[in-house]
Design a protein around this nucleic acid. Structure first.
Lengths: 188, 188
DNA sequence: TTGAACTTTCAAAACTTTCTGAAACCTCTA
DNA sequence: TAGAGGTTTCAGAAAGTTTTGAAAGTTCAA
């Protein structure tokens, strides 16, 4: 009387489970999105992690309701960041995917490859512009332009401090933001 | 022979200066975008910082080629994050804006208000789902669901560790990611 | 070598975010 | 307290991002 398989509407245990995992996956997705990744990447990783076993691409598509294209892209990107491992099972043509669980490896890699590059790019722009500002002919308003160049110099210093802290963090897993906390307040 | 005002095409010192500042502003904009802010916010702050004086909204619109609407929105948001100060000059109806230069104040505020909230939200979801998973009737596959709940528990722990580190960072300006580096690798 | 099974690519569609500019709304000064 | 000068709001436009799904590309067992 109570053991009949659910007719067709009604939650159903399987669906409930899927929805719950879905919810967690979304929460992680939001977190990762904040870190500059795509939301699906977080969702995929989470499902793989929670399920605890290697899943095939098509199962991921089913479980997360995404297209094969989206899955393929998310998976390669996750693999690039070493957040997911690609696995082959002998005698099975499909590829399987497994969640990487070494959190620090993931985070430090992002800091090193992405954030550092970002800061470096900014430093380059700052320095180049400062040089150009110097050579800009400025009859009669030398001091105003010089002031700007000075502040730009401070920006360069700041970016360098930031870069240093980031490097320290990645290398030692530990950082003291003192230099940043104390960074020269401008004297007006 | 060489001192005539530039005819109409040609760089022109004024334009060159504006373009150079523009370039720096864009670089900072890209950096801030990465941190989850809007690009214009970074551009506005940078221009204010480099110019070193309080500017009116309309001057910002001119210099950055943005509409009054965009400026208004960026400025209120910057003000919310205490990255820019709003200033009134006596006898002038306009509002002026000035760049805040205390970098740490800005960063710690973002970490506290935004990142922390984000993590807290995730923790709540994780715990709620874990509870529900526990009460999910699971005839005949008790162990699989339990495994999932266990891993979800680890996720909760991880998020708590992250929250702790963040709080420490904000309060002491210093952090040791050891707990994260060492976070329990899953035994498969 | 073939072809079935699976994966990747990519142009177009769907969706999201950001920007514009005019109208509504303030807020001072006279 | 009228209204000129400024600021904010907001609906629609523009720009940007993500997703889809079908076609092209791979790979492997036979």
């Amino acid at each position: 009387m109570t053991a009949a398989p659910p007719p067709s509407a009604e939650p159903g245990r399987k669906e409930q489970e899927r929805d719950l995992l879905h919810e967690v996956a979304d929460a992680v997705g939001a977190l990762m999105e904040f870190w500059g990744f795509k939301r699906v990447m977080g969702r995929v990783w989470t499902l793989l992690y929670l399920r605890g076993e290697a899943l095939s691409a098509s199962e991921l598509c089913d479980q997360l309701s995404i297209s094969s294209g989206a899955a393929s892209m998310a998976l390669s990107e996750l693999e690039h960041w070493a957040v997911v491992r690609r696995i082959r099972k002998p005698g099975d043509r499909r590829e399987y995917f497994e969640a990487e669980t070494d959190i620090w490896k993931m985070i430090s890699r992002v800091l090193r490859e992405r954030e550092l590059a970002q800061i470096e790019r900014a430093v380059e722009v700052f320095e180049r512009v400062r040089e150009k500002l110097r050579t800009l002919p400025a009859p009669g308003e030398r001091s105003r332009l010089d002031d700007i160049a000075d502040r730009l110099g401070k920006l360069v210093d700041l970016a360098r401090v930031g870069r240093g802290l980031l490097v320290a963090l990645v290398q030692q897993g530990r950082v003291d933001l003192g230099p940043l906390v104390r960074f020269p307040r401008s004297r007006r």
